[in-house]
Design a protein around this nucleic acid. Sequence first.
DNA 1: TTGCTGGTTTGACTTGGATCAACCCTTGCG
DNA 2: CGCAAGGGTTGATCCAAGTCAAACCAGCAA
Lengths: 243, 243
Amino acid sequence: MSASQSYIHCQNCNFSHLCLPLALNTDEMDKLDTIVKRNNPLHKNDYLIESNTPLTSLYAVRTGSFKSYIEDDDGEYQITAFHFPGDIIGFDGLREKRHVSQTQALETAMVCEIPFHMLEDVAEKLPNLRNQLMKFMSAEIQQDRELVMLLNKRNAESRLLYFLISLSKRFEERGFSATSFLLPMTRTDIGNFLGLTVETVSRLLTRFQKNGLIKVEGKALEILKKGDMEQMLTDYHINIDSI
Amino acid sequence: MSASQSYIHCQNCNFSHLCLPLALNTDEMDKLDTIVKRNNPLHKNDYLIESNTPLTSLYAVRTGSFKSYIEDDDGEYQITAFHFPGDIIGFDGLREKRHVSQTQALETAMVCEIPFHMLEDVAEKLPNLRNQLMKFMSAEIQQDRELVMLLNKRNAESRLLYFLISLSKRFEERGFSATSFLLPMTRTDIGNFLGLTVETVSRLLTRFQKNGLIKVEGKALEILKKGDMEQMLTDYHINIDSI
DNA sequence: TTGCTGGTTTGACTTGGATCAACCCTTGCG
DNA sequence: CGCAAGGGTTGATCCAAGTCAAACCAGCAA
């Protein structure tokens, strides 16, 4: 471990309130801390996880962002999640102890690696940690199902609105600006995730801009009328609290 | 507990190979067995779980079938899963210790109720059970993500094919016929789940019948050319092993 | 500097599945 | 029995979003 990384601990991590340590006390956090490996940074497009490889660790995002996707044998793929600091990656592989999706860095990023067999050992002694793991998985199930409803029942406009508001919320939770941020993913990625084509995403973004809701310039997004956008979601009967 | 139910134990349940006992030895299974409550049967349309109620138990389906769905404030709803014997219901509520979806019986059905606080106690002592719980949740995440891909990337025909083949597989796993069974859900339910209208589902079923793939008469479904149907899925690049 | 590549935008056109509408079953109940 | 209600089928029409095509732009490598 390099000197520049040695002072990072769960204790002083900015995102521990969103991450596994959430429900742990200081002692427990220290125990968790001892098994966490902090690796070298990954760069844009680097793979954190490749499909079909054995699951040996879970990963917590420390900085940067990732996308996870599943792929069929024709190369068609489906992005299933975007990950930001504090998010835990890898739960979908627990069943077969083998990764079923791939995870790729969207920009320079760092993770905390949590070797799975050691996590099990620590969890043996820490009911709070077990609980926390279950809650994370449960949250993922809940979110995936909201996503299914979004995809099955909502039109393109509401899907993209939902996406922008959820990004805004996630940045805010992490102490970043809720109204001005860089989109780490491409328009194609957004479309893929939401079940829309790039063209539709692009057209909608320009429309939102024309309507004064947002300002986009390449990756830079500014949310100008968050209230209006949330009202639009409410009009679509989408509960903004569950985002 | 009535006399007619007293002889039911995980040990002699037909579906234990799919259910929580899966990875447990005889002793462990007995421990699990002691906390399981076997209630009176539910009837068609009865609620097993109502939305927003506190999560006190998980449920294992013993006989019959269920649908789970989430609902928005306009009454629009999305069926997120159908449940058959051996399936565990309730994982999506663990996060907030409160159910976020409703579960309704599709026909007369019975469940094993597993009080959650007792499950936690037993799991404390049984690593295998903990593991099993995690695997179940992980499987649910994995399935939900496959579903997202299905909904986002596939057309109506392949969605319904997938649905029929997955039903067939689930019946087979449970020792029922893989090619001849009753659809416990309505066409509307199928459409809702797959993001299609009733009309589309109905038209497709008639088309499949005209093409000699299946025979449908009301709820009764016969799969005549399973091989052809699987080949069609393969042509759509849908991996039938992951169904 | 030039050319290449991947990402984005915009316009014209097409289409799969939704919508609307009518009608036919069952099933159950007063 | 009659009739209401829920479920299912079939046909005609429509439209939101997909497809196809072209052009633009920024970043990067040679």
